[in-house]
Computed example of a mutant assay.
Amino acid sequence: MTTDPAPLLHAARLATGHQQHPAGTLYVVATPIGNLADLTLRAIHVLGLVDAVACEDTRVAAQLLTHLGLHKPLRALHAHNEHEAAQGVLALLAQGQRVAYVSDAGTPAVSDPGAVLVAAARAAGHAVVPLPGPSSALAALSAAGDTLATAFCFIGFLPAKGGDRRTALAAVLADARAHVLFEAPHRIAELAAALAEAAPQRTVTLCRELTKQFESIVTRPAAELPGWLAAGAHHERGEFVLVLHALPPTVADDEALPPAALQALRVLMRELPLKQAVALAAELSGAPRKALYQRALAERDAGASEGESDA
Rank of each mutant, 00 (worst) to 15 (best):
K290Y: 01
A277G: 06
L274E: 14
P259S: 12
P258C: 08
L262I: 12
L262P: 00
E283D: 10
V278P: 05
L268E: 06
M269A: 14
A287F: 06
A261R: 05
A279P: 09
K275Y: 01
A264Q: 10
L280V: 01
R266V: 09
E283A: 15
V267I: 07
R289H: 11
R270V: 06
L265M: 08
P288Y: 07
S285G: 07
A291V: 00
K290F: 01
R266L: 11
M269S: 11
E271N: 07
E283R: 12
L274K: 12
A281T: 02
L274W: 02
A282I: 00
R289E: 10
L280C: 00
E255V: 15
A279Q: 15
R266F: 06
S285E: 03
P273Y: 08
A264Y: 00
G286M: 13
R270W: 10
P259V: 09
P259F: 11
S285A: 04
V278H: 05
P259E: 12
A279R: 13
P258S: 14
L274C: 13
A291T: 00
K290H: 07
E283F: 03
A277E: 02
P259L: 09
L280W: 01
L268V: 06
D253S: 11
P273E: 15
Q276L: 08
L274H: 03
L257E: 12
E283G: 07
Q263A: 14
L262S: 10
S285F: 05
R270L: 13
E255N: 12
L257H: 07
P288I: 05
D253F: 04
A260I: 13
R270D: 15
P288R: 06
V267A: 13
K275E: 04
L268H: 09
P258L: 13
A252F: 05
P288D: 05
G286V: 12
E271V: 14
A261W: 04
L262K: 14
A260F: 06
L262Y: 04
A291F: 00
L280S: 02
A279W: 02
A282G: 11
P273A: 15
E255Y: 14
R289F: 01
L268G: 03
V267R: 11
P258Q: 13
P259R: 14
A287D: 02
K290M: 04
G286P: 11
L268N: 09
R289D: 01
R266M: 09
A287I: 08
L272Q: 14
A277M: 04
L280M: 10
L257F: 06
L257T: 10
P259D: 13
L262M: 10
P273D: 14
A252G: 07
Q276D: 12
E271L: 14
P258Y: 08
A279F: 03
A281Y: 03
R270E: 15
L268I: 07
A256G: 12
A287E: 02
A256Q: 15
K290P: 04
E271K: 12
Q276H: 10
A261V: 08
A291D: 05
L274N: 08
A260L: 11
P288W: 05
M269V: 09
